[in-house]
């Protein structure tokens, strides 16, 4: 065991889930993942407590906490707040140093992030106000088809035919979907169309920032196999296999930053 007993935590409160990662001596010590509630402070604390419990630690054992995600603006438990863009860059770089491009799809937005060899952000682009291509949107779609969110991608993979769909807007996509259902299209074919149309939106973001290998896919939606395949097809890339749950990458990056901030602030040598 290392002499360095410092523990660092990252807490990422997103619109659908709150995540936390505790690092010790450069190793992931424990993680926590809970659904977000209406109170973002509480959600963050829940996620953090879950990780602390797993680790057998108390909050006081933590040297430094960085908050990220939408909940970062109200995270009294954190020493510092950093955006999830920077955190996803750091977290990805920590696990996969060869990655230069990140696709992050979370609850309410998706991001195209370009990073350098040190995990510093060189450029990024995010979806506009329209929610197409986000976890929230997929949740709505899961509702339309009355299936579980986590099954959407696998269902889409069973498609025998992809229904062409426009990427204009969630509003259009949703009504288009409903009319396709009414017309008797097979759900798997429609879902395949939805995934491809979202992938087209993502490709639009990358037309602004460019792509450099390796490519990583983070965020909750990264667990959707149908989405991963559609993006690989649209961007003509192969996505690096994640070493941990890709939904935890932001929290991991925050923990990595907690470590360097606390060092910089002279809290340990």
């Amino acid at each position: 065991m290392s002499l360095n007993k410092n523990f660092f935590a990252g807490v990422d409160v997103g619109s659908l889930a709150a995540k936390s990662v505790i690092l010790q001596d450069g190793e992931i010590f424990a993680t926590g993942l809970v659904p977000s509630g209406v109170n973002s402070v509480e959600s963050g604390l829940n996620a953090l407590n879950l990780a602390l419990e797993t680790a057998g630690l108390k909050k006081e054992d933590l040297t430094y906490i960085v908050g990220t995600g939408y909940g970062r603006v109200s995270a009294p438990y954190a020493n510092k707040a950093v955006t999830e863009i920077t955190c996803h860059a750091k977290g990805t770089n920590y696990l996969h140093p060869t990655v230069r491009t990140i696709i992050d799809m979370g609850g309410q937005d998706c991001k195209a992030i370009r990073i350098d060899k040190d995990g510093a952000v060189i450029d990024f682009a995010m979806n506009d106000k329209c929610a197409a291509g986000t976890g929230r949107f997929l949740e709505v779609m899961a509702g339309v088809f009355k299936v579980r969110l986590e099954d959407l991608g696998a269902i889409a993979l069973a498609a025998t035919d992809t229904v062409p769909m426009s990427s204009t807007c969630t509003v259009f996509a949703e009504s288009e979907t409903i009319s396709l259902v009414a017309r008797g299209e097979k759900p798997e074919n429609i879902l395949s169309g939805i995934h491809h149309s979202i992938a087209n939106r993502i490709a639009g973001l990358f037309s602004r920032v460019g792509i450099e290998s390796d490519v990583f896919f983070s965020g909750g939606v990264a667990k959707n196999i149908g989405m991963k395949n559609a993006i690989e097809e649209a961007l003509k890339v192969t996505i690096v296999k994640p070493e941990i749950d890709p939904q935890l990458i932001g929290a991991l990056g925050a923990a990595v930053l907690a470590r360097s901030f606390s060092k910089k602030e002279g809290l340990w040598a």
């Binding site: 329209c130 229904v163 087209n200």
Partner: peptide
């Protein structure tokens, strides 16, 4: 018809990607 529509959409999306949704 389906294949033709897909082809059309692909061209449309390639344009939107460059300019704007």
């Amino acid at each position: 018809l389906r294949q033709s529509e897909t082809r059309g959409i692909n061209i449309l999306e390639s344009g939107r990607r460059k300019i704007s949704i």
